[in-house]
Amino acid sequence: REYTIYHRGRTIDGTLQNDSTTEQCIYNTVKPRSEKNNRKHIHSLYEKNIHKYDTSACGTYVTIREIEEAIKDQVSVPYTMYIRFRLSIPLDDILIFSGFTDYPNSLFGDLKIKFKINPNAFVFAQVNPIISMAKYYTMNKTDLMASGPDKLKNIDLLFRNWSLGYQYTMQFTQMGCTADLITKISIEQITDSGLKYLMCSINPVTLSIKNYVVTEVTANMSGYKATDNCLQRRVEAWSFPISATTTGIRTSQNIPLSHITDLCLLFPKDARATCYENPCYHNMQVTTCGRNFPDMPMNTLDQQFFQMQLNASNLDLLFEATDEFEDALTTPRNTASRRLNPHTDLTSFVII
Rank of each mutant, 00 (worst) to 15 (best):
K31D: 02
Y53M: 07
A179M: 08
I182N: 04
F293W: 13
E326F: 03
L317I: 10
D302F: 02
I42H: 07
R8F: 00
F240V: 00
N220Q: 15
I42G: 00
I190W: 08
I64V: 09
L315A: 05
H41L: 09
D19I: 02
C264W: 14
T261D: 15
W238S: 06
T300Y: 03
S313C: 03
Y6C: 01
I5F: 04
I242P: 04
R33I: 06
I130H: 05
A244K: 08
P294W: 04
H41W: 11
R84L: 03
A146F: 01
T4D: 13
Y82M: 10
K114G: 10
T183V: 13
T261P: 01
L144G: 05
K52Q: 12
C289V: 04
F85C: 07
P241T: 04
S88K: 12
T261G: 13
S163Y: 09
T29P: 02
C289E: 12
T11C: 01
N314A: 12
I94C: 00
T101D: 14
S258I: 09
K153S: 09
S186N: 10
L181K: 03
F124P: 02
T101V: 03
R338H: 13
L107V: 09
L111T: 01
V217D: 11
P32F: 07
K116V: 05
Y103F: 12
S106Y: 06
G194L: 03
H282S: 15
S20F: 08
N105M: 05
M296F: 06
I187M: 06
M170W: 01
D19Y: 13
C58L: 11
R234T: 13
K116Q: 14
Q285F: 03
A121Y: 05
A328S: 15
D93E: 14
V30W: 10
C289S: 09
M308H: 10
Y197A: 09
R86Q: 14
Y276R: 02
R10D: 09
R65H: 15
V213P: 01
K116W: 11
K151A: 05
N128A: 05
M175H: 00
Y61G: 06
I94R: 00
N229C: 10
D262W: 12
I155D: 03
A226P: 01
